[in-house]
Computed example of a mutant assay.
Amino acid sequence: MSAKPFSSVWTRERKGPRDQGLSRDQIVRAAMELLNEEGLDALSMRKLGARLGAGATSLYWHVANKDELLELVMDEVYDEVVIPEGTSWHDAATAFAYGMHTAVSAHPWCVTLIGVLPGLGPKALTAADRLMAAFSDAGFDGPDVDYAVAAVVSYTLGATIPEVAYLNALARAGTDVTGAQAVMEPIIHEVAADYPHLIDRYRTYAGTSIDPLTARRLAFDFGLVALLDGLAARLPREARLDHPVRD
């Protein structure tokens, strides 16, 4: 059985503008609005066309199918990850991590698309290129550049996607983190009765006045700082002297 040939909106020759009708930018903006309002399951070419007051045929002039549309929309998510050109590796990694965390949190529908749709759009590639260039300029060499970038990307998405998925599930259930904790507290005490250390840790956090979402942000900060400290230690000594990490 032959493999299905790879196709992408970014590898297909783009048609010229029509004399009249919708532009691709209009279609992408409307798709983003629909996704933000109603989620991924609500998106269809027919529904998007109705939203724009146009038939599906007008949309297919610009995109061959829904997957191509999602590629375009996902590149707009990466547009919100701003990494200044020529910045230090530490600042570039920090900008990527917080930018990606914020973008995914603002567009929770994208959690099931990351890692599934290839990031081949110009905005995704710009973010990747600037992050890689910053590590290379700092003194990371050879495959260490790729490993360092992968570590930052993996930490960011690994910490962000489960959090956003959890908040999505709570929203669908009509509750929030505080409400879920109130429901779970007696259950945790019951099922973890034989694990006193876990119960003690749970009581410690339950007894604080820190907002649960703030606690999650602090945990993200801690993990990112620890990762960056570890990456700094991987630099050659002379590079660490030339590129000190700022507190």
Rank of each mutant, 00 (worst) to 15 (best):
L241V: 12
E33C: 00
A226G: 05
L48W: 05
L35I: 07
R18L: 11
A193G: 00
M100W: 05
P143M: 13
G139C: 09
R46F: 06
S136R: 14
W10Y: 15
A93G: 11
V183T: 12
T87M: 07
I161M: 02
G142A: 15
A192V: 02
G16P: 09
N168P: 00
T156A: 09
L198S: 09
E163W: 14
H90F: 14
P236V: 06
S154P: 04
V164N: 01
A106L: 07
I199H: 02
T204C: 06
L59G: 01
I210S: 06
L157G: 02
R240W: 10
G139D: 13
E38A: 09
P186R: 01
R217D: 11
N36P: 12
R51M: 11
L48N: 02
P17R: 07
G207D: 01
V145W: 04
D75N: 05
H107P: 06
A54I: 03
A50C: 03
D200F: 02
A193F: 03
A30Q: 09
L167K: 13
L48M: 05
G207Y: 00
I210M: 13
N36L: 03
A192T: 02
I199E: 08
G179R: 10
L43N: 09
I83M: 06
P84T: 03
F222I: 08
P244H: 03
D19I: 01
V149K: 11
R246G: 15
P162G: 06
K47W: 01
Y205I: 15
P5F: 00
L120P: 14
P244F: 01
A106Y: 10
A128D: 12
F96S: 04
D79V: 00
I114C: 04
L224I: 11
A31H: 05
A233G: 12
L52T: 03
R29N: 13
S88V: 03
I187D: 01
G139F: 10
L34K: 14
D144I: 10
G223E: 09
Q181Y: 04
W89R: 04
G158I: 03
A233F: 01
